[in-house]
């Protein structure tokens, strides 16, 4: 698929009421606040392959009733792109720093994919700051993964570029856009998904393959550590999981719901980015969850 990039960001339905930066160990993290109203909805960053604009389907809706907080994960968007420091605990620390900087005592966490691990750290280690957590297609080490994710080495040079062989640091350096187009077409495997794919490719191009390589595989939390975190989550949990998720898979979300004792909503026919592909359904699920917390 060829993606035509237009030079400037498209019109937003809602612009931030406040934005700023917080600096940790010399790394600047860009945050934004939209709207007002309790509780604060904290839309966490996912893998730095994209930045906070991926929540564009949620922000305008929730900002009408809530204070919505977002930040760009280190490595993309308006945040710095340090050479290292992409461990999960750094993202969690960034999140707390953003909460402090914005005077956010507590919030409902919403995370996508890789964001799940940060959210788990926050919910388990800082329970006083977390009212509840929603995990969308969580990338966790629990439950069954997808068979095709283990086929190729990420680290070694491969003699093919076919399919998931593109998930390889050498291919990233060779054809970064090609990787992004492949990856996001897997993420949005619902038919007629050109726009969300384009969006994500565009956001991916805002960073570099070098940064992405730096984010990859840095001290990930292993299954045991994640399970232990899940056991300590006391606030309500909702897992939203696409049944056709080709990036992390149905087994992950199902296992996370079980490990946290949370609610599970399956989206039949959805891939890995239902908040972008089916924003109305996801917004309604989020609203119901938030309303029940109140």
């Amino acid at each position: 698929m060829a993606v035509e990039l237009i030079g400037r960001e498209q019109t937003q339905a809602r612009y931030p009421d406040e934005s700023g930066e917080v600096v940790r160990d010399g790394v600047r993290i860009h945050w934004e606040v939209y709207g007002s109203g309790e509780p604060t909805i904290f839309l966490l960053p996912t893998w730095s392959i994209i930045h906070s604009r991926h929540w564009k389907g949620q922000i305008p809706y929730f900002a009408r009733h809530h204070r919505v907080l977002t930040f760009d994960g280190r490595g993309n968007g308006r945040s710095d792109r340090p050479a290292g420091g992409y461990e999960e605990r750094e993202f969690a620390a960034d999140a707390l720093a953003v909460m402090d900087a914005t005077g956010t005592e507590r919030a409902v966490l919403v995370s996508l994919s890789q964001g799940a691990q940060r959210a788990l750290l926050l919910a388990a280690d800082s329970p006083e700051r977390v009212d509840g957590s929603v995990f969308i297609c969580p990338a966790v080490a629990l439950g069954d993964g997808l068979p095709w994710r283990g086929t190729y080495s990420w680290d070694d040079e491969l003699d093919t570029d076919e399919g998931w062989a593109k998930y390889n640091r050498w291919y990233w350096l060779r054809d970064y856009r090609g990787f992004l187009e492949f990856f996001f077409s897997q993420m949005f495997n619902e038919r007629h998904s050109t726009k969300p794919i384009e969006d994500c490719v565009g956001w991916g191009l805002e960073t570099t393959p070098e940064v992405l390589i730096a984010t990859h595989g840095r001290d990930p939390l292993d299954a045991e550590a994640q399970r232990e975190l899940c056991g300590r989550v006391r606030s309500p949990v909702l897992v939203i999981q696409g049944t056709n998720d080709a990036i992390t898979g149905l087994g992950r979300g199902t296992a996370l719901a079980e490990a946290t004792g949370g609610e599970l909503v399956l989206l039949e026919g959805s891939g890995h980015g239902p908040h972008a592909r089916d924003p109305v359904a996801v917004n309604l699920l989020l609203r119901e969850f938030v309303r029940k917390l109140a």
């Binding site: 619902e190 609610e263 909503v265 399956l266 989206l267 959805s270 029940k292």
Partner: peptide
Amino acid sequence: ADEVAPPAPKVKTWTRALSR
């Protein structure tokens, strides 16, 4: 009543329009 005494969580499903 559901807000005051939430029922035990259960798995719910929503099916995408074109997947129905």
